[in-house]
Structures are given as structure tokens and as C-alpha cells.
Write a protein that binds this DNA or RNA. Structure first.
Lengths: 339, 339
DNA sequence: CACACTAAGTAAATCGTTTAACTAACCATA
DNA sequence: TATGGTTAGTTAAACGATTTACTTAGTGTG
């Protein structure tokens, strides 16, 4: 069924059909409108999205670009992305866009594909500063960066208040009397979300006269089993930690496992705090105390920004931080060895 | 940059450019080919996907349709979908297709959107028999149904061997001496994957003279907190169960939580077995014994079927079942109260 | 009545590709 | 020297919409 066939059946021109389909009702009489609508109803005609996009130069496609390292790990083993995808899909669907998902090693690799599809807008999740620069140079459509840090002008970023998250995390451990504290996170440099959390974590510690030394930092891989090993390492380390701040819930679960293997009970012997507040937190044992990030709020904010950019055809400089909060459950306890 | 501009710059016709772009090299001389390739390189030209789709009548888009009930629950709270999406995305990307994701309440609602996009093929995840019928009536492009059961001809289904999974699950409990066994799963009728697992579970029990009575069946919602309540119910039930077979890992974790609340230790007082073998199984406490399904194998099989249908333009009747296997961890123990 | 204005509708150009049909030049063969 | 076949290339018609510019008829208004 094409617009031409509908027009023929209704005995009108294609322009009239197009006007009815697109709601330009002031251009057709009530009578012809009814006639056309009846034919559309009967034939089940739906306009061809490709043809429409070609003519209007807008695709009603929004792309979500997710980086991955090597294998599908970061994506595969992270329920976080399931929640993010669900929220973003719902957001764009409600505004009659389609969501196209793409995993990619370096974000720069994707721009030609995006422009070939005439994508109306893009969400980039977890892009590095280098990624952002590469994209900004070559991409012509609006983009919002989720979970990235960049002070560049003309870039729209949405994230959570990672610094505050790290701060809250440490503060909670300190408030429970802990002074010998380890920090566990994926490898990080001096930028990006983990770095922010680290800074917040350290600042909170420093306020109480506690220093996080290089040997107190434990790197966890994105590989599933690694966090268990890190748990072992923390248990066996020369310094006897009474608490550990972990920057991801999934890793925290693995670390608890590793600690247990070495005979250290959580929270009695050592406290553990996570980050993200994934749904699995309430299913773990002990239930995981963590820093909660509101994925839905993040998706909404990112969507709102993108829609504004698409609507106004203007670049937007923004750096929105969704607030975080502490969620107390059972994995952090009072420090008993306290002086 | 359009093909026309490239043709102009190179001093050739658009047809020649098109031939070079599409690798029809036998139609252009080596010299003009080089000339055109140089211009393409210089200008960074990429063909417009919309225009191409319009002309060729194929979109190189594959859609993944995921049903959800009410809110984004089934999707949101299920890391399973994160893994499935990752695998399918990779599969189609490797074959230069794009993956378009759509959540939908009833699968029938989506066909007009799919045909308007001229989608080359569709994966439906978890569609009901009714969904399948609705889709089959109206959808014109190839479709593969993942995690569905249908004996219809002309439908391609890919799932795991759910019956065997249920069977293995019960068998493992029985082998450990359990005779008082509960069954926990989402509400189910007399079709679909849960029904299959239930049948396998019951058959294994019956072979050992154990009957699963209606009161031994516990329904868990897709809502997060509900499984904990189900754990309470099982602990408090008049019949003292020594084991429970749960048809999803996530629910199993919640049930363990609920049992613990009532003072029942796993696996000492009661054994629990899950289903799916999500990555969180090794992070739970106790580590979850479960039935493993190979999501990657499922995605590959589904992809292969879809590609065959797209390539041969023929409908395919298939009902592929990926084998499952038991993964022993720590949540199932010997029945101590055994006679 | 002449003029301007509005309403309803159409014809045709356009978007950026692919591809079938055609042309022109060259070469080999009978 | 016709004839036929190949090679390299072009022209123009699709594909299915949107949209601008145009036509025609009807309606006030001075």
C-alpha cells in the first residue's frame, strides 16, 4: 500500500492524502478528509518511514551508543545497562522515535554510520573524553553524553553527582567508626566518573584525618571472576582493613564473596559499601548498603536535553548532575576494633 | 555529500559511483574506479541509508521486540535481557545490520510500525502463543520467536530445552534425598516455557514417587519484592519443605532472602535451585546452584534462522532447542531429615 | 461589476539512491 | 566486410513520501 494507491482509491491527489496523514487538516475539507480516512482504515495503510525520512530529512531514529572493551563484558555483565536501555527506549518511544542500539569500541568509529542513517540524535553512554572530542569533531547531529565528564563547550553531558556519591560512601564508613579503609574500583585515570568518586571518597576521608594511600586502592577488572580475587587480596593484605568502598554493586558482591572465602564475615569483620543500587542489592547477602543513582531520572534528563537540541536545532552546553543518596542495608556495620 | 556530488567531482555518472560503492567492480575500469575511490576518500562520502533502502526495498534493520507487562518490570529487573540484547546486537552488527529495540505490550501492536520501517527481519522475545498468531497473520517479513512455544507451521522458534531444564532441576533435588519439594515460578498456564519446565519438574518427581500438589506451587510476581514474600510463605507453610525449585535465578535470590528472614538457612535447612545461570549466581550467598542456559548459543541459533529466512525469502518452520545443563554450586545440600 | 481574498485541491519537483535499458567503442570471427 | 560479443559507461525511471507553487471556484467588499 502506497500513498498513490490510497489517493487513487479515494479519488484525490497524493498531496491531500499526505495532508490528512500528517494532520494538516486546514488544507482539506471535512468531506474529503473522511473519505481518505475511511480508505486508510480499510487498507491499513501506513506511510513508508524511509520515503518519509528521505523527503523530510529527519529519520525519527535516535541511536544509543554503548562502548565495550574487547568482549561484551561491560555490557553483558552489567544489569545497569538493561535498566538504562529500558528507560531510554521508553522515553523515545513516548515521543514516537525509534531506538537503535549499537555497541562500539571507540565512539569515533560510529559517526559515519550515524550520518548515513540520518539519525536525529544520539545518546552516548560512558564515552571517554577522547571519544567526546572525536565525536564532536565529526558528528553533525545533536548528541547527549551519559556518564561522561567533559568541560568542553557545546557538549551536553548528563551524569550523577559522582563526587558526592564517593563522598557519601566514605562518610558512611567513617560515621561507623572505620579508619582503616580500602577503595576498590575499575582502573581509572584522572578523569571520568570513577576519578570523581575517588576524589569525593578521599576528601571525606581526609576531613577525618584518614588518608587513602596508593596501596589502599584495589583495581577490579570488568571480568566477572576478578572481583572475587580482589576480595581475597583485601583479606590477605598486610594492612587490616575494617571497611572497603567499592564503586560498583556487582564488584561489591564479588568482593564480599572473596572476603568470605578467606574467612572474613561481612559486616562483622569488615564492612562493604557498593555503588549504583541495582535491584540485585536487596537479593545479595548481606543486603548491600550502597549509593543509589536514579537511572530513570538520568534517562529523563538526557532525553529532555536531546529533545531540546533537536527541537531548537541549537547546540547546548550542559553538565547536569542527578543527585545521589545513601541507601543503608546490612553490609556496613560499626567498627568493633575501634579505639 | 551525495552520490551526485561525488559523480560530478569525479567526472563520471552516478551509476558508476554506485557501482564502485557497491562493489560491482566488473562494471568499471580500474582507472575510473581509482578515481572514484579517491574522491570518496577525500570527501568522506557515505551513502544515505534511507535513500538506499527506498531503492532496494531492504532496510538492513532488524528489530528486537520485547514484551513487558505494565511497567518496565520484566525488562528492567531482568539482567537476562541485557545479555540477550548484547548477543543479538553483536550478531546482527557482524552482518552489517542495525538493531532496533522496541518494548511492547502486545506483539500485534507493533506490526504496522515494523512494516512502515521496512524491517528486514524481527526477533520476538517471549511472545505468547496468542502474540504469535497475531503476528503471523499480519507481518510480512521474516520473524524468529525466542523463548516461545508454538507448534504452528511456518513459524521459527528458538528456545532452550525447558522440559529438560525442569527435569534436571527436580532430579538434582531428588538425588540429594529431598522428597518434600516446592515449586516456585511466575504464574503460568498450560503453555509457554514455564509450563514446559513444570512438566519436566513433575515428571522427574513422579519417577521417584513424589507428587507436586497444587498447594506446592508458589506464584512469584515479576515485582522485585514479591519473591521475598514467597520465601516467607514457603518457610511458614504447613508442609515442611526441604527443597524448592525456582524457575528464575532472580526469584531464587529473593526466596533465599525470604527464607532467611524466617530463620531457615540455605542449604542447611532447605535447598534452593534456580534457573538461567545469570552472572549474579556466583555472587549470591550461598552461590546459587542452577540450570544453565546458553544465551549466546540461543542468540546465534536465532540469528542463523533469521538470516536463512532473509536470504532465501522462504518461511521456515523450526523449533530449535538449545541444550541446558546443571550447574552445581552451594545452594543445594543433602537432605538431613531423610529417612 | 471589478477586485481581492480565502478555501480546497492538484501537479510536479525534490529527497538520494539503485538498476534496467541503452549506447558507443573495440575486437574477433566467418 | 558484415556480424556478434564484450567492455565501459551513461541515461532515466523507479522507490514512496513531502512540499512549493499553482489553479479554480466561491465569497465578500467597495
Amino acid at each position: 500500500m502506497t500513498i498513490k494507491q490510497v489517493a487513487e482509491k479515494a479519488g484525490v491527489s497524493v498531496a491531500s492524502v499526505s495532508n490528512v496523514v500528517n494532520g494538516n487538516y486546514h488544507k482539506v475539507s471535512a468531506e474529503t478528509r473522511r473519505k481518505i480516512e475511511r480508505i486508510i482504515e480499510e487498507t491499513g495503510y501506513t506511510p513508508n518511514a524511509m520515503a518519509r525520512s528521505l523527503a523530510t530529512q529527519e529519520s525519527r531514529i535516535i541511536s544509543l551508543v554503548i562502548p565495550y572493551i574487547g568482549e561484551v563484558f561491560t555490557f553483558n555483565y552489567n544489569p545497569y545497562y538493561a535498566e538504562l536501555i529500558a528507560e531510554l527506549e521508553k522515553y523515545v518511544r513516548d515521543r514516537s522515535y525509534c531506538l537503535m542500539i549499537r555497541c562500539v569500541e571507540r565512539c569515533g568509529d560510529i559517526v559515519s554510520m550515524l550520518s548515513s542513517w540520518n539519525v536525529d540524535g544520539v545518546f552516548f553512554a560512558g564515552a571517554s573524553a577522547e571519544d567526546i572530542r572525536a565525536v564532536r569533531r565529526s558528528l553533525k547531529c545533536p548528541a547527549v553524553f551519559i556518564d561522561s565528564y567533559s568541560e568542553d563547550v557545546g557538549v551536553a553531558c548528563v551524569g550523577i553527582d559522582d563526587y558526592r556519591g564517593g563522598y557519601l560512601s566514605a562518610q558512611h564508613l567513617l560515621n561507623n567508626g572505620h579508619r582503616s579503609i580500602a577503595f576498590a574500583a575499575p582502573q581509572f585515570g584522572t578523569e571520568g566518573v570513577i576519578w570523581q568518586r575517588y576524589c569525593g571518597f578521599c576528601d571525606a576521608c581526609r576531613e577525618k584525618g584518614v588518608e587513602i594511600a596508593p596501596e589502599d586502592i584495589f583495581a577490579v577488572d570488568t571480568i566477572e571472576s576478578n572481583s572475587v580475587v580482589v576480595g581475597n587480596d583485601i583479606a590477605m593484605s598486610p594492612k587490616k582493613y575494617t571497611a572497603v568502598g567499592v564503586m560498583s554493586d556487582l564488584s561489591a558482591c564479588g568482593i564480599i564473596q572473596g572476603l568470605r572465602q578467606c574467612g572474613r564475615a561481612v559486616p562483622d569483620d569488615i564492612s562493604v559499601i557498593g555503588f549504583d543500587n541495582l535491584s540485585l542489592c536487596s537479593f545479595s547477602y548481606p543486603k548491600l548498603t550502597t549509593v543509589s543513582q536514579d537511572i530513570r531520572a538520568k534517562a529523563c534528563k538526557a532525553g529532555d536535553l536531546l529533545m531540546r537540541m533537536i527541537g531548537n536545532k541549537e547546540e547546548l552546553t550542559a553538565f547536569e548532575k542527578i543527585p545521589v543518596k545513601l541507601v543503608e542495608r546490612d553490609s556496613v556495620g560499626k567498627n568493633k576494633q575501634n579505639t
